[in-house]
Nucleic acid binder design. Structure first.
Lengths: 318, 318
DNA sequence: TCGGTTATGCTCAGGATAAGTATAAGCCAA
DNA sequence: TTGGCTTATACTTATCCTGAGCATAACCGA
């Protein structure tokens, strides 16, 4: 039976799709997370998966290098989206986007490329929670979201909406969870507070600050940020973004920049040291205000030594 | 410049690809994890992403229901692969597989379907570490891997290989890490110990036990198992696999079945209870040997109450 | 009633975490 | 040259989490 179904589908025309490869390429410079953009900071590096590409990753590398002149280092796959938006357009062939997260250090973008490093908080201002409480913008965001909740049909739907808002945005005494980047973006999209949503046909209500991107690119970026924020907690990926030598404060600032929140200095150091992620180079940081800090380097050995951190299961020894 | 590149690629012919949707559909019955298979237990439910499908997920649902008669419940995306194997065949259009993980309860497979529930450890015997030390098979596996390490060209390559083996398989006093399912499969593939690798052109050395699958399907299954083993630790997804009411021991057995290892009973209960994942139904399990156990049900409230568990960052309160 | 079996409650030591306090070591300007 | 500013680094304390095991309860069948 399965065979029959399979055959039927093969004969049905028009299974052809086009697959786009999209890169979220991240660097951190001076405590600010940056992403590589093209098209006047309105798109991520991307291009179709082609015949000549030996694999998805090589295709991606080819496109990024061609468009930005920047080689790709550490790469991992993010997610595969089918295009939403243009929903009525049922005639066009399907197009899917296979997205990747890449980590590097910032480099000068070569001449002749339309590429820029753009700060990622330009696209997601609400994701930067480092500066305590940015009173005014947060207030308006919250009130827009509350208005959206209230606009639901029934009282129970209104409660449901507000609970979602409160959880994803850490309102009503809930904790802010920095990993919910994508959920926040999706919710704002659903609430019509994002230009992309209006473009895709939502009601044009008020729109909140934050630069937009073509197609699904801002959603893909949100996915990348979420993944990276989750990952720095259990794999030593920050080091892909650091220079060869750095002080512990620089490392802390990078982590804070990515996570969008501040961490406790002394405890951060203890965490790093007890995990033996770094070793002293012997050198001391120059030209700094305050007491000079020791320079450290990443201990590459840990990649081999430890596979992953951890278990939450109460394993039994016997 | 990017525009120029983009245009050049558009004019280049043959960007057409076909995208297959593949499902790893899991259930747990009597403490054994099962997966839905078709084609005489040699393939996962799958079919091409078609024109008529409104989204990737609806396409997947359509295929799984058509091939197995089983509706799809909880679903999440796993990974997107481009086909490897058939490397020399550069003429054929690219084909990519977008894979999903689905969780349900086992059901009778309807008449007229070629579908079966198959135990997942049939495909990965080495992943079941519940029964203490299965002495003989583990011994031969280890010796095969050691032989592969020794077959490297230089002494340093040999050491590298053995270190990889020891880490992924928990040898040399290292801990077994149940999440490294994919890494173990990839390593065995690389070592030519897997029929699929031989089929794809590796040297035909000895092959180890474990049923094979068509194409990349066993690799996709490994990806699914790994994802599920990781996820049960931080999201309450086991409950998708449990009946409405269950005893804590049944819950524990399910977790053990998925993780492939035994857990400490008392501590497991403490973990479940302190997280308030379940509540008593008031009823008591019948027809059991030993003291009868209380029945519990999953508290659906937790999904709304708590967003995610956790932080490893030493966050600062101020 | 005793031994087998599972359920459930409780303890205890060690380690990890959150949140500080205290001190050191530079610079700079009065 | 000294006091004040800044950052680095060491140490403390209370609390919580985890791994491991002991003890007891409740059922069954011989």
């Amino acid at each position: 039976m399965a065979g029959v179904l399979r055959k039927a589908s093969k004969t049905g025309a028009a299974n052809a799709t086009t697959a786009d490869l999209v890169a979220v390429l991240v660097a951190v410079t001076d405590g600010e997370p940056k992403i590589m953009t093209i098209a006047n900071a309105g798109a991520l590096p991307s291009g179709p998966f082609e015949f000549a590409h030996r694999s998805l990753q090589t295709g991606l590398r080819a496109w990024v290098e061609a468009q930005t002149g920047h080689p790709l280092g550490y790469v991992e796959q993010l997610y595969t989206f089918a295009d939403r938006g243009r929903a009525g357009d049922a005639k066009s062939p399907h197009s899917i986007s296979i997205s990747y997260l890449g980590l590097t250090r910032e480099d000068q973008v070569g001449q002749g490329f339309e590429a820029h490093w753009s700060g990622w908080y330009e696209y997601f201002p609400w994701e930067d929670q480092r500066s305590g409480l940015p009173a005014a913008p947060a207030k308006t965001l919250a009130s827009r979201l509350r208005a959206w909740s209230k606009s639901a049909a029934t009282a129970s739907l209104q409660r449901e909406r507000w609970q979602r808002v409160a959880i994803t945005f850490g309102l009503d005494d809930r904790e802010w969870n920095e990993e919910l980047v994508l959920q926040r973006y999706e919710l704002l999209y659903e609430a019509g507070l994002i230009p992309e949503a209006v473009r895709d046909g939502a009601d044009a209500t008020a729109v909140i600050p934050g630069r937009q991107m073509t197609g699904d690119h801002r959603r893909i970026l949100a996915t990348g940020i979420a993944r990276l924020r989750a990952k720095i907690k259990y794999r030593p990926v920050v080091f892909e973004l650091m220079p060869a030598e750095f002080t512990l404060l620089q490392l802390q600032r990078s982590v804070e920049a990515l996570a969008g929140r501040l961490v406790h200095k002394q405890n951060f150091r203890r965490l790093i040291e007890q995990q033996q992620l770094v070793e002293e180079t012997g050198a001391i940081a120059a030209d700094t205000v305050g007491r000079p800090a020791k320079l450290f380097r990443f201990r590459h050995g840990v990649l081999a030594e430890r596979a992953v951190v951890g278990t939450k299961l109460p394993l039994s020894r016997t």
